[in-house]
Amino acid sequence: MNHKLKLHNVTKEFQSEEVEIKALEDINLEVKPNEFLCIIGPSGCGKTTLLRMIAGLDYPSSGEIILDGDRVSGPSPDRGMVFQEFSLFPWRTVLKNIEFGLQIRGMKDKERREIAEKYLEFVGLQGFGNSYPYELSGGMKQRVAIARALATDPAILLMDEPFGSVDAQTRNVLQEELLEIWKRTKKTILFVTHSVDEAVYLADRVVVMSARPGRIIACRDIGIPRPRKRTSMEANEIREQLLMLLGSKHQK
């Protein structure tokens, strides 16, 4: 099998005031193992819906989503998800948040604590294990959310604008850290963003979507060797092309 995840003719319609709205139309996409794929598009293009359907939180109106040869039919811990809004359980300490998936699975206290500590170190938050979410900054919260999503060792990591609500500097740091995590864990990552800069810095391949109905209008391999420079000529060139793709669809 040369693909990890396959979307076949995925369509999503919403019913709203007797009008049927096509949120996504005929999405076909194959994601390779270990690939870092970014999905960009204007707001309302259905990129979040697409990610939610892969997570199993929404269902396609037609078409199918296949992960590792199995059809996705509901949420499961083999698809880790990091949400845009802060999603830590506020009543649990950092370590207990990371342990959550393992606890649900019925793993013993000691075992899951060890794993949680490993992932805590992964995201560079040693020493914060016993803190509560309210004591953490926005960037730290998202780091914990990433550690929590990784702790159950999912086949694929889905990220829905995870750095959308942190400040610009923190955002850059988090991006670098994510690439480091990706290198270490060899996970397949699907990353939704509306930032072209972010996509060009992170992705192996960028999928560009248009709004209403959401369609894939382009797939672009980035091909710049890592570590990348945000301001390099090549990066600028790709950014320009992507922005044009997005812009032309905007002005219609």
Partner: peptide, 13 residues
């Protein structure tokens, strides 16, 4: 909702 969905994707179903 986000906490329920977070639970869902972590196997709390």
């Amino acid at each position: 909702k986000v906490l329920v969905e977070t639970g869902n994707v972590l196997g709390c179903i």
